[in-house]
Design a protein around this nucleic acid. Structure first.
Lengths: 150, 150
DNA sequence: ATCTGTGCAAATAGTTTGCATCCTC
DNA sequence: GAGGATGCAAACTATTTGCACAGAT
């Protein structure tokens, strides 16, 4: 059973404390913001939403959280990287990205996870995380302009 | 049956000509370089290897090739994007990335592809491409330093 | 001759770093 | 009081754009 949003916030704060970090205000705000989001936010979006927090602190917090495995960094678009909370228990998702309008839609699939686990096990790597991105046109964009309709 | 390196080079040059592009030297050099590579190169690596080609031309060529579906852009590391040739026929691979040493190792897996196709078909998106990245430590790095060994 | 392709350099955008200060422990 | 945490601004890196010129058709 995955933890809930608020639980994740608690978890993250605790994990940081146990990792020897002090409780400053910037990091806490980043954590609380991420805890309330289902999907990824870019560092700049986070910075924009947190007036009293400096941009550098946002990046620093995200890096620390990523290293502790509490946040997953995603290379979704060609521009900024996305960051989203990661429930230690499992229950994670991947993304469908519309190349036309930029929409990012999360999805989850058991078979896909199994296939990835099998590849991970068979490889010489010690795989710690993975990321799947499906690109194309979302329903609206594909419908609006059937892509290369003669 | 996938096309071979040289075939891909030919194919790309033909596709560009048919798409109405003229045959300048910069683009040809980028294509020939990519045609000879199995795995991804960053735009800067390409620029570095092609003395007589301007950096901007490299980016422009890569963008055009990507749009024609001849090149796949990868968001592998946190830094530069990678570009590799894409055989229209199929036969494509994904990547294992070592977060310690930066090694990028390609792999292919049928079951994984099937799972992705199933998700694609079930989604509302018109999926045109996909990318899977497995992150962790490569054999050497994992062995050398058992990751968080007390 | 025309109009695209190219190289150079400047402009952008995202991310990182240096440093003085603030605040937690 | 000591040392980490933070904000600001400057530094960097990757990528894009403007523009004049070369080259392809």
């Amino acid at each position: 059973m995955p933890v809930s949003r608020d639980d994740w916030t608690e978890l993250a704060l605790t994990a940081l404390r146990r990792a020897g970090y002090r409780a400053g205000g910037a990091r806490r705000q980043v954590i609380e913001l991420l805890g309330g989001e289902e999907c990824a936010l870019t560092a700049l979006e986070i910075d924009r939403r947190l007036d009293s927090v400096g941009r550098a602190s946002v990046y620093r917090a995200l890096e620390q959280l990523e290293q502790l495995g509490l946040v997953q960094r995603l290379e979704v678009g060609g521009e900024a990287a996305g960051y989203e909370r990661r429930d230690p228990g499992g229950e994670h998702h991947h993304h469908l990205v519309c190349e036309r309008c930029g929409a990012v839609v999360p999805f989850a699939d058991e078979d896909l996870e199994r296939a990835i686990d099998a590849v991970s096990d068979a490889s010489a790597f010690r795989v710690l995380s993975h990321e799947v991105v499906l690109r194309g046109s979302c329903g609206a964009c594909a419908g609006a302009k059937p892509r290369q309709a003669a």
